[in-house]
């Protein structure tokens, strides 16, 4: 039986990252993934269980210059109900609306969803197409060290990220989009919520006079991590969204993904859905 030897509930960021120094720490935030995973034995709780829920620096949604910072402890419900997010990132609200259930949205945190790094993580696809970056903090010496990295480089595998054991994800930063920015999200599952995506798609960019630029396309549940679709993006960049282009791009998207068979769907069906839903979303953008 693996049981932690210490429990620690820091009340400041300094305390939290200092605790992380020895690396043998399991971080508890919302707990919606950690609880079932640890109780089923899929995840071993390390020497120290650190509950970061009482760290004020990890909360809040703030406008800082041309960026919005969402603290890692922000719950999915808080994101959905926040005026800044609703105004600037309706695509994130849309994804949050499909996230698990109300009870889980009330507790699950954005930082947790990011660190859990599920290939089907609901918030990750919109964050990827919004060019979000991840804020990390650590204490290599005696003082707090912060840095950030693009979310698109953060994920390395299912449940695996570039966060080192001594680092804490403190929040995400998203640049407030300029005029003519569009962003859309679609989650394909069998029910409105309480469902893990069969696939999910995010598409964003600048749409000006019918031409799409700065294109960002991301897919969920088709690879070991949520992924940006570089070939699909390239095919869309600078294009006018006519029927021929949409058809072609949808085909490229289908060929670009390499999903697997699992209990939710076969790879074949996932590829078909990447095609059909990409096509549907682009047609929707073109008609809007």
């Amino acid at each position: 039986m693996t049981e932690p030897k210490h429990y620690f509930a820091p009340t400041s960021l300094d305390q939290a990252v200092e605790c992380l120094k020895d690396g043998d720490v399991t971080i508890l935030a919302g707990g919606t993934d950690l609880t079932p995973q640890s109780q089923s034995g899929k995840l071993r709780i390390k020497q120290t269980l650190m509950n970061i829920r009482r760290v004020p620096e990890l909360t809040g949604i703030t406008l800082e210059g041309d960026e919005i910072r969402i603290g890692a402890l922000t719950t999915i419900t808080e994101i959905m109900e926040n005026a800044l997010v609703k105004q600037h990132f309706p695509v994130l609200v849309e994804a949050c609306d499909h996230f698990a259930s109300d009870q889980i949205r009330n507790v699950a945190t954005l930082g947790g969803n990011i660190c859990n790094a599920s290939p089907a993580g609901d918030t990750l696809i919109p964050l990827l197409v919004l060019d979000a970056s991840v804020e990390l903090a650590s204490m290599p010496e005696a003082t707090l060290y912060r840095h950030s990295m693009p979310l698109s480089t953060f994920f390395v595998g299912p449940g695996k990220t570039r966060r080192s054991l001594c680092e804490l994800v403190t929040g995400v930063r998203i640049r407030v989009p300029g005029p003519n920015h569009i962003a859309h999200f679609h989650k394909l599952g069998t029910r409105p919520a309480l469902d893990i995506s069969t696939i999910s798609i995010g598409i964003a960019g600048t749409l000006k006079e019918g031409i799409l630029s700065n294109v960002r396309v991301a897919f969920g549940a088709v690879a070991p991590t949520p992924v940006r679709a570089s070939q699909t993006e390239k095919a869309l960049e600078g294009q006018r969204l006519d029927a021929v282009t949409i058809g072609k791009v949808a085909g490229i998207a289908r060929d670009e993904v390499k999903p697997i068979d699992d209990v939710r769907a076969t790879a074949w069906y996932r590829k078909e859905m990447i095609h059909n839903i990409t096509k549907r979303m682009l047609s929707h953008v073109a008609q809007a």
């Binding site: 069998t190 029910r191 409105p192 919520a193 309480l194 893990i196 209990v263 939710r264």
Partner: peptide
């Protein structure tokens, strides 16, 4: 008719949980 199925592969149950054994939820 639509959502429920116990998936058995070579005698192994693949979805012994409510996540992947899908009971109908209220909105449906």
């Amino acid at each position: 008719a639509l959502t429920e199925e116990l998936l058995i592969e070579n005698g192994v149950m693949k979805n012994p949980n409510f996540r992947d054994y899908k009971l109908v939820t209220a909105p449906e």
